[in-house]
């Protein structure tokens, strides 16, 4: 299905997408700033949301890892996901150390 997927064409479209998304984000951020949208409740909501999403991602990585192990065995994808798992966990540990000092 993806036989004729042109990676270089994809990568040339990428900067354009990034630029447009960046401009949209910048203007919505400026509008939000005016409305004082980024207050402590906002921080709280988004902190908790990321916290929940972190848990979901943890499960997703484990499931993806299991699929790779069953389908492909120890190939590149296996090590990529193992590396991702390590990053996910180590960054949590570092985050906990930082947050523990701050609070």
């Amino acid at each position: 299905m993806y036989e004729e997927f042109d990676i270089w064409a994809f990568l040339s479209g990428l900067p354009l997408g990034l630029a447009i998304a960046g401009i949209i984000l910048y203007f919505s951020w400026r509008k939000g700033k005016k409305e004082r949208r980024y207050d402590e409740r906002y921080t709280n909501v988004h902190r908790q949301a990321k916290s929940i999403s972190w848990g979901t991602t943890t499960v997703a990585i484990l499931v993806a890892w299991a699929i790779v192990m069953i389908v492909e065995g120890s190939q590149l994808a296996f090590f990529v996901l193992a590396g991702l798992w390590v990053v996910h966990m180590v960054s949590y540990g570092i985050g906990a150390a930082i947050a523990s000092k701050q609070n």
Partner: peptide
């Protein structure tokens, strides 16, 4: 210096403000 959403939430008693607020 907060959003209107925060005021609504506080009035409804849903949001626990920080000590500072």
């Amino acid at each position: 210096d907060v959003s209107r959403q925060t005021i609504i939430s506080l009035e409804k008693g849903r949001y626990n403000p920080s000590l500072i607020l």
